[in-house]
Design a protein around this nucleic acid. Structure first.
Lengths: 122, 122
DNA sequence: CTTGACTTTGGAGTGCGGTCACAGGTTTAG
DNA sequence: CTAAACCTGTGACCGCACTCCAAAGTCAAG
């Protein structure tokens, strides 16, 4: 299958597939005699794995490291679990930050003229 | 006062002050005969206003629009309140997204070998 | 007078994950 | 045979808010 078909199957753009290849997440596929990329159907799984990981908030760099493990044939579960745990901690930190921010904002909106506001004589 | 002194007072870098000027958040100050920027002490307030707004999660673009109002002499409270309300809504949406993501991650970490993992025969 | 700390400008680089434009070659349906 | 739809590589561009660079000019202390 060619790049557009693969991209269509997994719901990304052809450019994105080529980008993943450039970024080292996808091995360069074999080419037809005219130079077109020819993907085996298994290529779709790999991209879906990438998208799944992205949905979980992992960066391409992190995903790349999981793929490296996966490519050795090992289950990437263990390193993935570490990444995910770290990610949960980051999410917790971010949620706390947002919660604090939110209450600051709510306080400020409740005020008549916020501490942010006063343009008195400035 | 020159740019480094102003920057030091408000805790940013001189480059940042010049950047704000380029970005239209700070009016170009008068210059000395040799071309150095000469800031009145009131310049510090403006930068502190910018930083306060940033701490509340506003973008420079949004802050710029508040400053425009402030520069007319009007209290920027009303437009600010709208911005802040919108921001609260965005924060709520983001917190919900993170909460969902977090529970997905926790489920996944709890699993023996996550749905993300299986490299079986791929 | 020299040294070092400041200042100026314009432009480029950072990280992230793509996205698009260009100019030309290929394939496929009708 | 032709037109549309694909493909190629290279490289620029997006937003965001800085941050840094070079090269040259200025200023203050010793």
């Amino acid at each position: 299958m060619r790049v557009a078909e693969l991209a269509r199957q997994v719901g990304v753009r052809p450019d994105t597939v080529r980008y993943y290849e450039r970024a080292g997440l996808l091995a360069p596929p074999p080419r037809t005699s005219s130079g077109y990329r020819q993907y085996p159907s298994s290529a779709a799984d790999r991209i879906l794995f990438i998208r799944d990981c992205q949905r979980l908030g992992l960066t391409l760099r992190e995903i790349s490291s999981l793929l490296e493990v996966r490519d050795t044939g090992e289950c990437p579960c263990e390193p993935a679990e570490q990444l995910l745990r770290r990610h949960i901690a980051e999410i917790d930190a971010e949620m706390e930050r947002l919660a604090r921010l939110r209450s600051d904002l709510v306080d400020m909106v409740g005020t008549d003229c916020s501490p942010l506001c006063p343009p008195e004589g400035r």
